[in-house]
Design a protein around this nucleic acid. Structure first.
Length: 360
DNA sequence: CATACGTGGCT
DNA sequence: TAGCCAAGTAT
């Protein structure tokens, strides 16, 4: 069967020139694979450049502070990737003497590395014959083989993995894996695949049976739930300097490890947010101390399975009793050194335009 | 096995 | 436009 020979030939002729394809450094390949989890090349590219510049090797990353790594990752999403990458860098420093592990098992045991990423690093960096099964591969193979079982079920993934374990090029498994993914990214796309120029079209079951639009099959997704976030940007002047208040997000929830302004979360829209804030933070600020107050428009922040409806309350204050607040006080000038989710970062840019000249 | 986790581009 | 989905992982 020369199906995959055509694929490899196509890959060498058509592959994109990407920075992580110009190195054999497992560290850099690892960083690229973490960034590319659920993320398009176009979106991840600038982050890859930034991270490699800032942390050129495992040691540099291992010695970084979590806040700094998260700031570097700010805007990319799925922030546990950044936290786990840092944990794994430290693990490599401490338990592998700073040397990136070279076998599948040790790679797979690192935090943030699952079946896909372990196979990707093992094959690309160390030439080990582990097939990758990612979204591209599931789409390409299910079409090629005319698989109509849902590709998001474990059994279908296992079936495709077993199939590829037989087919994988043992000499150049990294190229084999990347060729399959590259085909999925450039030709065998989810919508409007370019079957006419596909190097596998002769052998493609879905193509020949007119089922390209029906395959792959996926089980249904659930509806979006709405969360309401009411933020309070509190500004206080002391000794001719402006301060605000922040909290670090913890717990198993969205944006863990990032920072936020004092927040009230509700399941429905708050009618009197300021009142609610006073009653929840007794002694922190007093209504009499408010010099100026502004309420932003409602901002809808759309996530895959969530809609966050957020609003920012800006309060300019005479004074505040920080002992009654659980977060911490920040010099306004240092605000932008903290990692924030996109929602906050976006609003902050509007905020600066609109208000900064009033008090800075 | 289902669900949570971000963001942005495309249809 | 609302929905889909992108080089997945952890729980």
């Amino acid at each position: 069967m020369d199906v995959f020979k055509n694929l490899i030939r196509w890959y060498h002729k058509n592959k994109r020139d990407l920075p992580w394809r110009r190195t054999s450094d497992p560290y850099k390949i690892w960083v690229s694979e973490i960034i590319l989890q659920q993320t398009r090349v176009d979106q991840g590219m600038e982050y890859y450049i930034r991270i490699i510049n800032r942390y050129p090797d495992v040691n540099a990353l291992a010695n970084a502070a979590e806040d700094e790594v998260l700031k570097t990752w700010q805007g990319l999403g799925y922030y546990s990737r950044a936290r786990n990458m840092l944990l794994s860098a430290r693990e490599i420093e401490n338990k592998h003497s700073g040397h990136f592990p070279e076998n599948y098992c040790d790679i797979r045991n690192l935090k943030g590395i699952g079946d896909y990423t372990a196979a990707a690093i093992a094959s690309i960096a160390f030439n080990l014959p582990y097939p990758v099964v990612d979204g591209n591969v599931l789409r390409v193979i299910s079409r090629l083989e005319g698989i109509t079982d849902p590709i998001d079920s474990a059994s279908t993934k296992k079936y495709i993995l077993n199939l590829l374990e037989e087919k994988i090029d043992k000499k150049l498994p990294g190229d084999f894996n990347q060729a399959l993914m590259e085909l999925g990214a450039l030709i065998c796309t989810p919508s409007n695949p370019r079957c006419i120029i596909c190097p596998l079209n002769v052998h493609c079951n879905a193509y020949h049976t007119g089922r390209i639009k029906q395959i792959p099959v996926k089980t249904k997704k659930q509806a979006k739930k709405i969360r309401y976030f009411e933020y309070f940007i509190i500004l206080v002047r002391e000794d001719n300097k402006w301060f605000t208040f922040l909290e670090k997000r913890s717990g198993e929830d969205i944006w863990k490890g990032l920072y936020q302004f004092p927040l009230i979360e509700t399941k429905s829209l708050l009618q009197n947010p300021i009142e609610e804030f006073f009653s929840r933070n007794k002694g922190f600020i007093r209504p009499d101390d408010i010099l100026e107050q502004y309420t932003s428009k409602m901002i809808s922040h759309i996530l895959t399975h969530r809609i966050i409806k957020a609003r920012f309350q800006m309060l300019l204050l005479e004074s505040a009793d920080e002992e009654f607040y659980e977060g911490f006080k920040v010099d306004y000038k240092k605000l932008f050194s903290y990692p924030f989710p996109r929602l906050t970062d976006r609003y902050l840019k509007v905020f600066v335009e609109k208000f900064e000249k009033k008090f800075v």
